[in-house]
Design a protein around this nucleic acid. Structure first.
Length: 424
RNA sequence: GGAGAGAUGCAGGAGUGGUUGAACUGGCACGCCUGGAAAGCGUGUGUACCGCAAGGUACCGAGGGUUCGAAUCCCUCUCUCUCCGCCA
């Protein structure tokens, strides 16, 4: 949620930025400001009534202490109407607070200045392309065929054990996956990220903190008996480490990384585009998260992007960096870059990472703040995260792009991790 | 899963119905002292919301209730600890 005070004191800016997402949010903005106004008035009224009631109670106490029972009892009568009034106002206030929260939750994050206008993925801007497509890819097999040919992934058995979208990696397929995880984690550590292993089930509060709940409830697997969700991304547990926390300015930026499986229901997506590893219900991912001083967050975003891009360079994957347009931006994000690798056999781009700055959107929900050195006040931080990287599509591109008549060649940097140079 | 104990401010820890937002100790900040430091002394030190301000309101795990008045009494829930059971 955008902090209400930020909206109040920067209305023009919020309006201008939000407008990029479309005009439908401007009304919401007015609405929430109105609700906020009513809320404040109601609070004032309630406080006044309570003040009177408190004063009376105090007076009554003194009366009884001094033995003036008659006077005390007389005063008691007066409290009755105040009590009813305060109860009424209390309820009204609570309703208004909830209304405001709901209205605020319906407003997406404001796109950053540099986010282009646009409605669909066609309006995204290609920021950078690294590498180029191969010249001769005649006879190239798609990764699902390669996986079968070299016995790397057994989709059918995954279906038998669980269902579609839960692949079973085998032999060198499993090893390659493990190698990638270790490589990505080691790289992150070199950049100063602290590796953690978080829980992969989360409670409701955590889901709310990072913005998955209540909106994206249907995307997550839910364990009803214990009221928990399987994480759709490590972003949720990693960022929620710092829910309700007050950091010192010296602690910033906080940089953490984790490897976790991720679970997504992906309800309603079927067909060719979700074949093989393209879209799964369970997949592995290494995530990086930064908690940043608001003044530095956009610099941080750039650093994170080039880091992710650098990873793809190291494993030699032709890729591009997209600056997402307002229409393609996630609800909670203020600015997002997507990294897509080129799949030589499928002849299309596959998203392998998404790096975002959420500004105050998550920290406001999380109540994640730092103590400012300037005024010693508690201020909200900016949160950022990115995939570094999501495994299945990297694996898919790696298999497809590195296929040769002799087998699949493993990128040099990964050989120390896999222990083999070729999949034959 | 069964039995018991507990949850108070940055931390420890008092407080069992009335000027208690909360004693006391420590921590921290500032000042004095010192050549400098330690010790010592003094002062200060919660958060959120409303308000231009004065000030007000709320908060003693969470939510309800009793009462003119609740950290304090009652109910429900959550969490932590100890013992037993089970277990990778």
């Amino acid at each position: 949620m955008i902090p209400i005070n930020y909206i109040k004191s920067n209305k023009e800016e919020v309006l201008a930025r939000l407008e990029k997402r479309g005009p439908q949010y401007l009304d919401l903005l007015e609405k929430v400001l109105k609700t906020d106004f009513e809320r404040r008035q109601t609070q004032q009224n309630r406080d006044t009534v309570l003040e009177q009631a408190n004063a009376l109670a105090k007076e009554i106490g003194i009366c009884f202490k001094n033995g003036e029972h008659d006077k005390g009892n007389a005063l008691k009568v007066k409290t009755q109407s105040l009590k009813e009034e305060s109860k009424r106002l209390e309820e009204a206030l609570r309703a208004l607070e909830e209304k405001m929260r709901n209205e605020l939750s319906a407003i997406p994050n404001m796109p950053h200045d540099k986010v282009p206008k646009g409605f669909s993925e066609n309006d995204n801007i290609v920021e950078r392309v690294w590498g180029e497509a191969l010249q001769n890819t005649d006879g190239f097999l798609c990764h699902w065929d390669l996986a079968a040919k070299y016995d790397l992934i057994d989709f059918e058995t995954g279906v038998k054990i669980t269902g579609a979208g839960f692949p079973l990696y085998k032999g060198k397929g499993a090893k390659l996956q493990r190698a990638l995880i270790n490589f990505f984690l080691d790289q992150a550590e070199l950049q100063g990220y602290l590796e953690v292993q978080p829980p992969i089930m989360i409670n409701e509060e955590s889901g709310f903190g990072t913005g998955q709940l209540p909106d994206k409830e249907g995307q997550m697997y839910y364990v009803e008996k214990d009221n928990m969700y399987l994480i759709p991304t490590a972003e949720v547990p990693l960022t929620n480490i710092y829910r309700n926390a007050i950091l010192t300015e010296d602690e910033l930026p906080i940089k953490i990384t984790a490897y976790t499986p991720c679970f997504r229901r992906e309800a309603g997506s079927y067909g060719k585009h979700v074949r093989g590893l393209n879209r799964l219900h369970q997949f592995d991912k290494v995530e990086i998260v930064q908690i940043s001083h608001p003044d530095n967050s956009y610099n941080t975003l750039e650093v994170m992007c080039s880091y992710v891009s650098g990873l793809l360079e190291k494993i030699g994957l032709h890729h591009r960096v997209l600056r997402l347009c307002a229409g393609d931006l996630g609800f909670a994000s203020a600015c997002t870059f997507d990294m897509e690798v080129y799949s030589e056999a499928q002849k299309r781009w596959l998203e392998v990472s998404s790096v975002s700055n959420f500004e105050y959107y998550q920290s406001n929900r999380l109540q994640l703040r730092y103590k400012s050195k300037v005024n010693n006040k508690k201020e909200l931080v900016h949160t950022l995260n990115g995939s570094a990287l999501a495994l299945p599509r990297v694996l898919a591109a790696l298999l497809e792009n590195n296929q040769t008549p002799e087998g699949i060649r493993i990128p040099e940097v990964l050989v120390p991790y896999t222990g083999f140079e070729m999949i034959e």
